[in-house]
């Protein structure tokens, strides 16, 4: 399904179509390259070409890094150092709890996997070290960030399934100890937890200097509650059932979910995190584009 783009010339691909393409790398490459070619905008962020300082040459330094112009002027060997001469760590924290398996055309998990794949591919194109952590109520898989881990990350994403109930707080608190080096952390989840618990988990990550990006993935029916028939609603994770007459409480539900997303957005802004609500009907590249735009705007402000 083609979605009308707010950006002239950009073409977006239906995520349901992408989900049918089994090769995640191919999907990521198509989405990212298509996006870059379509927009002609630099995809780089956190650029490392800014000059930082000169220092004296010491034995062992690569002579290719000697600033020959300064040598011409001063007749001394100086090494030119840049602001970000080393790549950033890019880690995706993907929620694989059972609730992520919900979805009619495409499940939230598949959507999240595609999104994570695209972001990882994009970061890897920037020479960032990419890593992946899947979690439910505990850490399921942990691929440490590395420049060579793109394939491992994609493979791990491909195998990820949503089978167990989830809990966002404990795994995030456990992860905070692993992120000693500053980097970019992308959290993809449906965030079915109280905001306090969510930010208690994410806070330590942020406090260690990481850039935290929250992708709140929800199915359209979770947002607008488009059910009609009175039914028993079964919790995917706990198996509990309660009888529901949708027309009686849809309005209250929508109000509650809106309050929840607004609270998350507000709290994220307060802690200088990026928050984005993603509807699984929204094309992946469209979501990426909005994300990059948002990052650029925020980066310029920071």
């Amino acid at each position: 399904m083609a979605v009308t783009s707010p950006i002239p010339g950009a073409r977006f691909v239906d995520p349901a179509v992408l989900a049918r393409v089994g090769n995640l790398e191919l999907v990521a490459k198509s989405v990212v390259d298509g996006l870059i070619n379509g927009t002609h905008r630099s995809p780089f962020f956190g650029a490392s070409v800014d000059f930082a300082e000169h220092r004296g040459y010491v034995s062992g330094d690569d002579i290719r890094r000697v600033d020959w112009r300064v040598y011409a002027r001063t007749d001394k060997y100086y090494i030119k150092e840049f602001e970000a001469d080393s790549n950033a760590n890019f880690s995706v924290l993907l929620d694989v709890s059972k609730s992520m398996s919900f979805g009619e055309k495409i499940s939230k998990l598949d959507y999240g996997k595609t999104l994570a794949g695209c972001l990882t591919y994009m970061a890897n194109q920037q020479r960032d070290r990419v890593g992946l952590i899947t979690f439910d109520h505990d850490i399921v898989n942990h691929v440490p960030p590395s420049a060579k881990h793109l394939e491992v990350v994609l493979h791990t994403l491909d195998r990820a399934t949503a089978t167990r109930p989830g809990q966002i707080g404990p795994p995030l608190r456990k992860l905070a100890e692993h992120f000693g080096r500053r980097g970019i952390i992308v959290v993809i989840s449906d965030f079915y937890a109280e905001p306090d618990e969510i930010f208690e988990g994410l806070g330590p990550l942020r406090f260690r200097g990481n850039d935290v990006v929250m992708f709140h993935v929800l199915d359209p029916r979770e947002i607008d509650f488009g059910f009609v028939e009175p039914s028993s609603f079964e919790d995917l994770e706990s198996g509990d059932q309660i009888p529901i007459i949708p027309d009686k409480l849809a309005e209250q539900y929508r109000k509650l979910i809106t309050e929840h997303t607004e609270t998350l957005a507000k709290r994220a802004a307060e802690q200088q995190m990026d928050y984005m609500l993603l509807n699984t009907e929204m094309p992946i590249d469209f979501a990426l584009f909005r994300f990059l735009s948002m990052r650029e705007r925020l980066a310029s402000r920071r």
Partner: peptide, 9 residues
């Protein structure tokens, strides 16, 4: 029986 991600709300 409708399966729903979470009955939290």
């Amino acid at each position: 029986v409708v399966q729903f991600p979470s009955l939290m709300f």
